[in-house]
Simulated assay, not measured.
Amino acid sequence: MDRSSLAKKRRRFALGFTAALIATIASGIANAAEISKPTSLRVAYSAITVNQAIPWIAYEAGHFKKHGLDVELIHASSITALQALLANEVSIAQSVTDACVSSNLSGADTLFLGAILDKPLYSFIVNPKIKTPQDLKGKRVGVTRFGATPDALARAMLKMWNLDPATDVMMVQLNEMGLLVQGLVNNVIDAAPISIPGNIRAKNLGFTELFDMTKIGKTYITGTVVTRKRFIDSQRDTAKRFMRGFLGGMKTYLEDEDFSIKVIQKWTRAKNRDEIREAYALQARNMLRIPRTSIEGVKTILEGMEKIPGAKTADPRRFIDSTILDELEKEGFLKTLYKN
C-alpha cells in the first residue's frame, strides 16, 4: 500500500473516531440533562396564614430545587385543596388537617406526612360586647369552611363551654381566614377562631380574645403535610425529596428570622411588619423541630368526628405515614439539619 492510500485511511479513521466520540459525548450530555431535569410537583396551601409559611420559605430559599424538585405552589381553600388532592391535580396539600381524617374515614387514602405544630395557634376572637362564653348564645360564629380546621376548633370550643353549635349559635362560612377578620369589622359575624397573624390584626383593631386556644389543654395538630398513600407508593423518591425540602424550610424558618418574615410578608401581602414579626415569633416558639404527626393529635380530631361512622373505633395510626421521616432519620438527614 502506498503512502497516499495509507494517509487517506488514517484520515477516514480519525474522522470516524471523532464523529463517534462527538456522538458519545452528545448522548452523555443529553442523558445527564435528562437525569438532572427537576421533577415537577404541585402543592396546594390552604390559607394565607403563618402556619402555611414553610412551603413558601422552602420555595424561596431554593430547598426544593436543591433536591431536584420544580414545585408549583397553588392557593386553594382547605376543602378545594383536598378535592384537588383526591383528583390528582396536586400531590401534596398543606394544612387540610381535619379534612384529611374525614376523607380517610370515608374511604380515601389520605395520610399525614408530618405536622409542624401540636397545638392550635388560634384565638377565639369576639366582638368587644361579648364578655363571657354564654354571651355567644344567639350570635354568629364565623368559620372558613364547614369541615375545615377552624370549623372543628369552633365546635370544640363551643362544646367546651356547654354550647350546642347546632342550636345555640349560627355558624357562618366565610371561605378564607382573612375574611373572618373582615367579617368582624363589617359586623357580618360576632366571633371566630382566627389563626396567626389574623388574630393579632383583630386584637389591634379592638376586638377581644375570649380564649387563647394554645391553652385548650389537648394536643391538636396544625400546619400538616397531607398526601395520598398511592403517591407515597408510586413516587416514594419524590415524596422523600419533598420532605427534605420541607425540612430545609423549617430550618430556615427557625434560624433566619429576617428572611422568613420577608417571605411571609410577600406571600400574605401583609403590610404591618410588627404583626408578622409577632406571629413569626409565636410560631417559632411552638414549632416542632422534627414534624412528626402526633398520635394524640389525631385522636383529638377523631373525638370531634364521633358522628362519622368508624371514627370512635379508628386507630389513629392509620392516618399517619411515618416511614418517610423514619427513612430520613435512618439515613442521617435529620441530624444534619440543625447546629444544635
Results as ranks from 00 to 15, higher is better:
88 N>M: 03
88 N>Q: 11
89 E>K: 15
92 I>A: 12
98 D>Y: 03
99 A>W: 05
99 A>P: 00
100 C>G: 05
101 V>W: 08
105 L>H: 08
106 S>R: 15
108 A>H: 09
108 A>Q: 10
110 T>N: 08
111 L>K: 14
111 L>F: 04
112 F>E: 07
114 G>D: 08
116 I>C: 07
116 I>N: 09
117 L>K: 10
119 K>A: 15
123 S>Q: 05
125 I>G: 11
127 N>I: 11
131 K>T: 13
131 K>H: 13
133 P>Y: 14
133 P>C: 14
135 D>H: 07
141 V>F: 01
145 R>M: 11
147 G>A: 08
149 T>R: 02
154 A>M: 09
155 R>C: 13
156 A>G: 06
159 K>L: 11
159 K>V: 08
160 M>N: 14
160 M>Q: 11
162 N>F: 01
162 N>T: 09
162 N>Q: 14
164 D>I: 07
165 P>S: 10
166 A>E: 15
167 T>H: 11
168 D>C: 05
168 D>N: 03
169 V>F: 08
170 M>R: 14
171 M>E: 01
171 M>K: 03
172 V>S: 07
173 Q>E: 15
176 E>F: 11
177 M>G: 02
177 M>K: 01
178 G>Y: 05
179 L>P: 00
179 L>W: 09
181 V>Q: 02
182 Q>E: 14
182 Q>L: 09
183 G>E: 06
183 G>C: 07
185 V>F: 00
